[in-house]
């Protein structure tokens, strides 16, 4: 990467800022990865969001819809370990989580349906009637 210096001679910090800006762009997103990962499915009649939530009791999952924003939150509880137990491996994560998904249309609560099967959550959001495309008839002149 080249940092042309001649046009920034007046500002001694310009080069540094430009280097830092590039660094921010290249560096991967810092911090914890987002949980849960979601897949979004689309169709004419509905939109579905699926997420893998292994080990989470369906009662601990909260889903709310406000306008076109769907929020999925909950808590994954750490397992109860007897006294004196030793951890050999701890690859799974625990704690509170929250994710927001923007829907392509505003949905009302009664068109949202959620189901959990084997730790996979599936939320189906029905597309409201007024949002569906209407076919325009062409009249003969």
């Amino acid at each position: 990467m080249l940092y042309p210096f001649h046009n920034r001679r007046r500002d001694p910090f310009a080069l540094m800022q430009s280097v830092l800006g590039d660094f921010d762009r290249i560096a991967p997103t810092r911090g914890q990865p987002v949980f849960p990962a979601v897949n979004v499915w689309q169709g004419d009649e509905a939109v579905a969001i699926t997420a893998e939530l292994p080990g989470i009791d369906p009662a601990d999952i909260d889903i709310s819809v406000k306008g076109n924003v769907l929020t999925l939150s909950g808590e994954r509880k750490a397992p109860e370990v007897p006294e004196g137990a030793r951890w050999h491996r701890n690859e799974r994560g625990y704690g509170k989580f929250s994710r927001t998904v923007r829907l392509p249309f505003a949905a009302s609560d009664d068109t949202v349906e959620a189901r959990v099967a084997n730790g996979v959550l599936r939320i189906v959001v029905g597309r409201p009637e007024e949002d569906k495309p209407r076919k325009i008839e062409i009249k003969a002149a």
């Binding site: 990962a37 979004v40 689309q42 004419d44």
Partner: peptide
């Protein structure tokens, strides 16, 4: 058992 909501196509995948 793959998740495949009926009549819907995958539009965005994170996993």
């Amino acid at each position: 058992r793959p998740t495949q909501p009926e009549k819907l196509q995958l539009a965005y995948a994170e996993y």
